[in-house]
């Protein structure tokens, strides 16, 4: 603005401008920043601190115990098992839910009379919550009077005590989760399908492409951001899954469904070992951090230099 500014005045005005900008941006950023500070960053620091302390079950008599609890967590085979179970659970829920959602979306992405009814049915499980779907499946999976074993028995398939078998408990819990999530997956993928321009298909048809090649070369690439979104959200859901575990298996049998959230919950709120539970959470954080950085490194090579 001013014509002949000295170097010193220019630096001063730059500082003034920075202050002005900060003041202008603050009201937009502060709500989020304050909330993050209180409910994300402070808990992170506090958890690390709690991990170095032991208390009595009632949160009293706090004493410094050094790295003992971190050592306990790192050497605990139960904790390693919980990490493994969490990973498996993510795998068992994300892949089937995405695949089934893709199938249902493709099936109902047509102009047919009455198709809206089917789309609504396919997306209806988005209305079911974790408690609803757990209660629904608890009865279906009942080994004595459950309908699943009845149908399997009719079909000549050996029946199972689904939730009490160390082999089947995790797949069974995953199945209830998949059922609950296919509605969401179908909706998002349907939207993704509608985003793919119709002209692409038309020109492909002119080139005489088959249905399969159409799917491989147009639909799948067009859907890739959507599928990525569905699976990322699925992984987030999987890492936070608690209700279905609590209602269906309580982490058992033999820790087969003891996902990390449930393990931390149990340590903190059933065994009342807040320190040990915090140490678990911190170790989990470090693992997630390392994985994310690794992924970031890989992604940078892929995305930025292309």
């Amino acid at each position: 603005m001013s014509g002949e500014a000295t170097v010193g005045r220019r630096a001063g005005s730059r500082r003034a401008q920075a202050i002005r900008q900060t003041v202008a941006a603050a009201p937009f950023l502060l709500p989020s920043l304050v909330l993050f500070a209180v409910f994300v960053f402070y808990p992170l620091v506090r958890s690390i601190w709690l991990g170095f302390h032991a208390t009595d079950p009632f949160g009293r008599n706090e004493v410094w115990v050094g790295t003992a609890q971190y050592h306990d967590v790192l050497t605990s085979s139960d904790f390693r098992h919980s990490l493994l179970v969490t990973g498996q659970f993510a795998l068992y829920t994300v892949i089937p839910a995405t695949a089934i959602g893709l199938y249902l979306a493709l099936l109902s992405h047509r102009r047919l009379p009455g198709i809206v009814v089917f789309r609504t049915i396919f997306s209806s499980t988005v209305a079911t919550s974790v408690a609803v779907s757990s209660v629904v499946w608890l009865l279906m999976l009942n080994p004595s009077v459950g309908v699943l074993n009845y149908i399997l028995g009719k079909g000549g398939v050996p029946t199972e005590s689904w939730l009490t078998s160390p082999t089947w408990a995790l797949p069974a819990v995953a199945m209830t989760t998949v059922w609950m999530n296919i509605g969401f997956a179908t909706i998002v993928i349907l939207a993704g399908l509608q985003n793919i321009p119709e002209e692409l298909y038309e020109s492909a048809r002119v080139d005489g492409a088959g249905r399969w090649s159409e799917f491989l070369h147009i639909t799948l690439p067009g859907l890739s951001p959507t599928l990525l979104f569905v699976s990322v959200v699925g992984v987030i859901f999987a890492f936070e899954s608690f209700g279905q575990i609590q209602i269906l298996t309580q982490g058992g049998p033999l820790g087969a469904t003891n996902v990390i959230v449930y393990s931390i919950y149990r340590e903190a709120f059933l065994h009342y070992n807040i320190g040990l539970a915090s140490a678990q959470a911190v170790v989990l954080f470090v693992i997630v951090l390392l994985l994310t950085l690794l992924q970031f490194g890989v992604a940078r090579r892929w995305v930025f230099y292309r």
Binding site: N142, P143, S144, V145, S161, L163, T164, G252, P253
Partner: peptide, 10 residues
Amino acid sequence: VGTSGLQSLL
């Protein structure tokens, strides 16, 4: 019958 109560009675 696993850990859930009443299943044995059922």
